[in-house]
């Protein structure tokens, strides 16, 4: 499978030749996606990578840069059931998971599933809820099931959480606990659009109505097929050695408070596989790992504080410090 003209590592604005007629579903998906979210090709690819890898996505940015639109867009394009929960400080766990309610007619308790019973859950401004509520969500993410009143109920398949988060400096937020941050496969930033993209955005149609008009490009089955292909992408010993070298560097260089865990290593390989598949390859290259390292690793390395530029620079240092074996 090849996806001509799609290469997220190319700088923005580089003209690529698209061939819509012969394009594969993934090609069409990116064409559609880029018509809504303008000038964010790399972030879009990372988001799709995350989904193909079966991971949850955390989008961290200021309000109003398109976080919600992105989540919504992904659900539409992949043809997934979509639920949105706006997290607030008074949101309770049961508001997410659902609750058993006594029905007077039958005289029994019946379970009313919460918004978590969906295929793609958008947890908007997840850091505005209390830790207790956050925990309920994170548990569902990890276990892919919900236990209410002693009964365990599986969540639909596939199940994705796209959480958005305001930068911690904003008022009225509860930071996600560090131990729970790595439930998310990736954390990405959208950032402000470039001037051209912003111009087009401001002149263009309303995003919401665009989304409403949008037809799904993929369905659940084809998504699962793609996920199976991700599993089949080959990882060589040499590549594992590179990933190990990266992990080892974060542990021994002293630059990071806590080094990357083995789980982070697995996440890197998983994301790398999906990224390689998007690039039309059947084997992971060091470049794939390098591409997915910043979104996979920053939130696990506890590089708290500092601007997003600082974090990018830290990732840059990590990448340049470790030679490709």
């Amino acid at each position: 499978m090849r996806f001509p003209g799609i290469d997220g590592r190319q700088p923005l604005g580089l003209k690529t030749v698209l061939r819509p007629k012969s394009a594969t579903p993934l090609d069409r998906l990116f064409i559609e996606a880029e018509s809504v979210i303008l000038g964010k090709r790399h972030q879009l690819r990372l988001a799709v990578t995350c989904l193909l890898a079966g991971g949850h996505l955390l989008i961290e940015d200021l309000p109003g840069v398109g976080k919600t639109t992105l989540a919504h867009l992904l659900a539409r394009l992949f043809g997934l059931q979509f639920q949105r929960v706006q997290f607030t400080s008074d949101l309770l766990p049961a508001d997410i998971t659902g609750a058993s309610i006594f029905e007077r007619e039958s005289g029994t308790f019946s379970f009313h599933p919460g918004p978590v019973f969906t295929q793609l859950l958008l947890a908007d401004e997840v850091n505005r809820a209390t830790p207790k509520t956050q925990s309920a969500l994170l548990e569902a993410m990890e276990e892919r099931q919900v236990t209410v009143d002693g009964r365990t109920r599986p969540l639909p398949v596939p199940f994705f959480v796209v959480a958005t988060q305001n930068p911690a400096s904003q008022l009225g937020t509860f930071d996600l606990p560090e131990s729970q941050l790595d439930r998310f496969l990736m954390r990405i930033h959208l950032g402000y659009p470039g001037p051209e993209a912003e111009h087009e955005l401001l002149r263009g149609r309303d995003r919401r109505s665009m989304l409403a008009d949008m037809e799904p490009v993929l369905d659940t089955r084809s998504l699962q097929e793609l996920q199976a292909q991700v599993d089949a992408v080959f990882v060589s010993d040499a590549l594992v050695a590179y990933v190990q070298a990266l992990l080892e560097h974060t542990r021994s260089s002293g630059e990071y408070g806590v080094g990357l865990s083995p789980r982070a290593g697995l996440a890197l390989l998983r994301a790398g596989r999906a990224w390689a598949l998007l690039d039309g390859r059947k084997a992971v290259l060091p470049e794939d790992i390098q591409a997915v390292l910043p979104p996979v690793a920053t939130h696990r390395l506890h590089i708290t504080g500092g601007s997003s530029e600082d974090r990018t620079a830290a990732m840059e240092r990590l990448l340049t410090a470790v030679p490709v074996p």
Partner: peptide, 9 residues
């Protein structure tokens, strides 16, 4: 080649 540069890059 920079040490961290992969073959494709």
């Amino acid at each position: 080649r920079a040490p961290h540069e992969g073959p494709k890059d």
